[in-house]
Amino acid sequence: MQGMESTIKIRVVHLYKSFGDKQVLRGVDLEVWQGESMVVIGGSGSGKTVLIKCIIGLIRPEQGEIRVDGLEITSLNAKEMNEVRKKFGMLFQAGALFDSMKVWENVGFGLRQQTRLSEEEIRKNASEKLALVGLKDVEDLMPSELSGGMRKRVSLARAIAMEPEILLYDEPTTGIDPIMADAINDLIVQMKEKLNVTSIAITHDIKSAYKIADRIAMLYQGKIIEVGTPEEIRNSPNPMVQQFVEGRSEGPIKIL
């Protein structure tokens, strides 16, 4: 990966964000290359969700830069940001499916809003996207009728429906059983291969990170403390990283 692909798709520089007097991000630096799968690991509450919501413009940071294809996005107005968002698809932690709409309407939402395609064409497209994530005959179900794993798949289908260049995954394997989690991991790898997207996933599931990442970055105390290939992370001399990847409760990371 390294050297072969050197175009930077997303660059985060010295990003700061706090809520009240709670500093969540304290100078995050991160580079994501075109076509790579970056996984950000970190404990619960470490600010992973805040970081990707900054990248897609849902949260405005106090300081720092975020560049997407070279364009600085933290100072854009709502309309400009809306254009940038068309490059992105996002899978939310609990799916965030629209519960008043059927599955196919969820998947086809972007097409309905932004194109003039007929209902049949949208539905057909939605079925194709659902097939891509391994689902069929679910078009007419309501989100409340789906299991946790299916919700994530539908949400993924919705995220890829507009053929984005960048996919963001918020805890793709959290809250579902290990077999389903592994199936989601496979899907994420497939998405990269089939759709040639750049992706950022955030997770505290280290097993999932090893499986889907080209590179892994660890977020700790508001900063990225280490970036490297899965192999490099596994063998990192950094005691914080070691403790996290081995899942030990004793070590430099204190549990409150």
């Binding site: 413009g57 849902l58 709502a78 254009e83 968002r85 965030a96 499916l97 972007g110 919705r158």
Partner: peptide
């Protein structure tokens, strides 16, 4: 948030 990410206000 999902609406925003689908470029819908």
């Amino acid at each position: 948030d999902a609406l925003y990410t689908l470029a819908t206000n």
